[in-house]
Simulated scan of single mutants.
Amino acid sequence: MTQRPAYLHWLDKAAITLSGFCVVHCVATIVLIGTLTSLGHFFANPLIHEIGLLCATLLGAVALGSGIMRHRRTLPVFIGVPGLALMAAALFAPHGYGEALLTILGVSLVAGAHMMNARTC
């Protein structure tokens, strides 16, 4: 019996790994779609978004405030406060595209401000 070249052994391992990923992907897709379908009404509930956005706005304000108290740099606040204002505006916007746009823009600004805070501290 002749010995196989080393690259063929590597190809077999790669093929087995890829087959395993395929099985995981198929099972995970079925489970995920089934779960999201049955929980879709929960995630689409505007109250879930409002509570989450309110908590994120309050936590963001506290974190930005404590950051400026520690490092005395105002740039994160100048970026974060408009983001918090957009997030707060999203709380009062009708549920839909406008609310989503306000939320995404606001969260993006606040996330950038938090990254500045983290680097400065």
Score class of each variant (00 low, 15 high):
Asn45Phe: 02
Pro94Ile: 08
Phe78Gly: 04
His25Phe: 15
Ala118Ile: 13
Ala15Gly: 05
Leu54Trp: 00
Ala14Met: 07
Leu75Ser: 05
Thr57Leu: 00
Leu59Arg: 08
Met115Leu: 15
Arg70Gln: 10
His25Trp: 13
Gln3Val: 13
Leu84His: 01
Val110Glu: 06
Ala14Ser: 06
Leu91Tyr: 01
Ala15Lys: 10
Met69Tyr: 12
Met87Tyr: 00
Val110Ser: 05
Arg4Tyr: 11
Leu101Val: 15
Leu58Thr: 02
Ile48Cys: 05
Val77Asn: 07
Pro46Val: 06
Gly60Trp: 09
His95Phe: 15
Ala63Asp: 02
Tyr97Gly: 12
Asn117Phe: 02
Ala89Ser: 14
Ala44Thr: 11
Cys121Arg: 11
Gly40Ala: 09
Leu8Ser: 05
Ala111Tyr: 02
Leu64Ser: 05
Glu99Met: 08
Leu105Met: 01
Val77Gly: 05
Leu91Cys: 04
Val31Asp: 07
Ile48Gly: 01
Asn45Ile: 01
Asn45Ser: 08
Thr17Asn: 12
Val107His: 02
Gly96Asn: 06
Leu109Phe: 12
Phe78Asp: 01
Ser38Lys: 10
Ile79Trp: 04
Val31Tyr: 10
Ala44Tyr: 04
Ser108Gln: 05
Phe21Trp: 14
Asn45Asp: 14
Leu84Phe: 03
Thr57Asn: 00
Ala28Asp: 09
Thr17Leu: 15
Gln3Leu: 13
Leu59Glu: 10
Glu99Cys: 03
Ser19Leu: 15
Ile48Leu: 15
Val31Arg: 06
Met1Asn: 11
Met1Pro: 13
Trp10Asn: 02
Asn117Cys: 10
Leu101Pro: 04
Leu54Asn: 00
Gly20Tyr: 07
Ser66Val: 09
Ala88Lys: 00
Ala15Asn: 08
Ile33Glu: 12
Met87Ala: 00
Gly65Glu: 08
Ala6Pro: 14
Leu59Cys: 13
Thr2Trp: 06
Ile30Trp: 10
Ala93Phe: 02
Leu53Ala: 05
Leu58Asp: 01
Gly106Met: 03
Arg70Asn: 05
Thr120Trp: 13
Ala56Cys: 10
Ile33Asn: 08
Arg4Pro: 04
Ile51Asn: 03
Thr74Asp: 13
Arg72Lys: 15
Leu86Tyr: 11
Phe78Lys: 09
Ser38Ile: 11
Val110Cys: 08
Gly98Glu: 06
Gly20Val: 07
Cys26Met: 13
Gly83Pro: 07
Leu18Asn: 09
Gly112Ala: 07
Thr29Glu: 12
Thr37Ala: 13
Phe21Pro: 04
Ala93Arg: 05
Cys121Thr: 14
Val62Cys: 07
Ser66Asn: 14
Arg119Lys: 14
Pro82Asp: 01
Asn117Met: 09
Val110Lys: 04
Leu47Gln: 14
Ser38Asn: 06
Ile104Ser: 10
Ala6His: 12
Gln3Arg: 12
Leu64Cys: 06
Gly83Lys: 04
Ile104Tyr: 06
